[in-house]
């Protein structure tokens, strides 16, 4: 690990100024991912600005029925919150499906969105990697592909985003609130991540020095019966091969409302809008669930080593919709 300067910021605006003013500076919140990457010298910030004590640790009601979750809320606090569990069970389930209890105590909601890919070539500094060192190569393209993306990837990077929480947030159309050198703004979660084709070295549209302060969950009544299903190589403490966050409302045998997002398949939590469009107004049948999943996955471009993810994603979507329809 490279030596670095640690600063404990006294207020948000000076923290933002401190990071924005130096290209080699980084915010520090939970640090569960950042410090790991620093040890391996995958990232080498010269200045860490600790903001955990400055960002909100509370979950508040929003007018209109939503919730505002402070970026400093720990993953476990989010999962345990009674309102979250009652109104957005997929969020709670997704968070609890990730990492370990200890890591979830450390990791923050804001940091969860910004965790870096687990691509082994990104994490090994002796390997070429366009995300770590732009213009080198994508080692995964011809390498170990099991955990790589099948949707939205590019020749320059096939890495997958590892967040579980983000998948549920994408299904809910959550909105991120930030403060940066240019002031405050909001960014829908579904617009947070950049396409790897635009340069994989930057994961998100956040500017350098822009800090996530909260995430707003809108009022989504159908989410009260939502679910998160994570399929992985072992029962606990593994990243998703495929995950599905979904909510479904059926009336008179037809789909009235549906939200589906996928994890483990792309550089971002993947909102399955094609599948959603395919289902709206149609009978809630196994055949339609399958057709919708296949429509969504028609765009998949799997690699040889992860081609199984396409039928696995299809089956998991169908399995999830079947369960939700039976419960509805």
């Amino acid at each position: 690990m490279k030596p670095f300067v640690y600063e404990r910021a006294t207020d948000v605006s000076s923290a933002v100024a401190a990071v924005a003013g130096r290209p080699d500076a980084s915010f520090l919140a939970g640090g569960s991912n950042l410090v790991d990457l620093m040890k391996m010298e995958v990232v080498k910030p010269e200045l860490l600005v600790d903001i955990r004590h400055l960002i909100s640790h509370t979950i508040e009601e929003l007018p209109g029925g939503g919730l505002r979750i402070g970026a400093g809320v720990s993953n476990n606090e989010l999962a345990a919150d009674r309102r979250v569990r009652r109104r957005y069970p997929m969020v709670s389930q997704a968070v609890l499906a990730g990492a370990s209890f200890q890591l979830r105590n450390l990791a923050t909601v804001g940091g969860n969105f910004l965790q870096r890919t687990r691509c082994p070539y990104f994490r090994d500094v002796s390997m070429p990697c366009n995300k770590r060192e732009p213009g080198t190569a994508c080692s995964a393209l011809e390498g170990h592909q099991r955990d790589m993306a099948i949707l939205g990837a590019s020749e320059s990077c096939v890495a997958m985003h590892p967040s579980d929480m983000g998948v549920a947030m994408a299904a809910l159309d959550a909105v991120i609130r930030t403060v940066g050198p240019d002031g405050e703004r909001t960014i829908p979660v579904n617009e947070l991540y950049r396409s790897p084709a635009d340069g994989p070295e930057r994961d998100t549209v956040l500017k350098h020095g822009e800090l996530i302060t909260a995430v707003d969950l809108p009022d989504v009544p159908v989410a009260a019966t939502s679910r998160y299903r994570k399929v992985r190589d072992r029962a606990s403490y593994a990243f998703a091969l495929v995950s599905v966050a979904a909510a479904l409302r059926v009336r008179g045998g037809a789909v009235r409302e549906v939200r589906i997002a996928l994890g483990g398949v792309a550089h971002k939590p993947w909102r399955a809008r094609t599948a959603e469009r395919h289902l709206i107004g149609r009978p809630a049948t196994e055949a339609n669930f399958r057709a919708a999943a296949e429509a969504e996955l028609a765009a998949a471009e799997p690699l040889k080593g992860n081609a199984f993810k396409v039928p696995l994603a299809r089956n998991t979507i169908v399995s999830m919709l079947r369960t939700l329809a039976e419960e509805a």
């Binding site: 002796s126 170990h144 190589d233 072992r234 029962a235 593994a238």
Partner: peptide, 19 residues
């Protein structure tokens, strides 16, 4: 490259308690 790709306990899976 001849390297072991999944060289940590996140990438190399051993049974967890839940298994």
């Amino acid at each position: 490259y001849g390297n072991f790709v999944n060289n940590d306990l996140a990438g190399y899976h051993v049974a967890a308690n839940a298994d």
